[in-house]
């Protein structure tokens, strides 16, 4: 239950930052929090209480490994989604730089050419 609440709270914080804050860098931070709320949730899904890292050592039987290790799949998913989040964040920063170059400000209210 905790993990659902945690993910929901972080998701909400990220969403708030992304949609409500007017400063573009705060929006970027909001995006990162949003991404990592989901990542955290995914990692927690795969967590086994008292589990070992999902790396098989020499001399370990397959059964013992499968029984004791945490689920590696969510970790692979999270790695991928971190990469995607990184790409998004980078693009967002690059766009912010463009906007700064044009308007001399990172305040979303100063962006004037598109209304509605």
């Amino acid at each position: 239950m905790t993990m659902y609440v945690l993910a929901a709270v972080l998701f909400g914080v990220g969403l708030y930052g992304l949609l409500v804050k007017r400063h573009l860098l705060k929006k970027v931070l909001g995006l990162l929090i949003l991404e990592h709320a989901v990542n955290l949730f995914l990692v927690e899904v795969g967590y086994v209480d008292g589990g070992s890292p999902p790396i098989r050592l020499a001399g370990e039987t397959a059964a013992a490994f499968a029984g004791g290790a945490v689920d590696p799949l969510p970790q692979a998913l999270v790695l991928t989604s971190i990469v995607i989040g990184l790409g998004l964040a980078m693009l967002m920063v690059a766009l912010s730089l463009r906007i700064y170059e044009r308007y001399g400000s990172l305040d979303a209210d100063r962006m004037s050419e598109l209304k509605g």
Binding site: L18, L34, A37, I84, L95, S96, I99, R102, M111, L114
Partner: peptide
């Protein structure tokens, strides 16, 4: 300016959608 603003807006909503 127009393009970048539109892209920024699109990116924000798109990111929320992906999340």
């Amino acid at each position: 300016g127009r393009e970048v603003e539109a892209a920024f807006k699109y990116l924000i909503l798109g990111a929320v959608a992906s999340a």
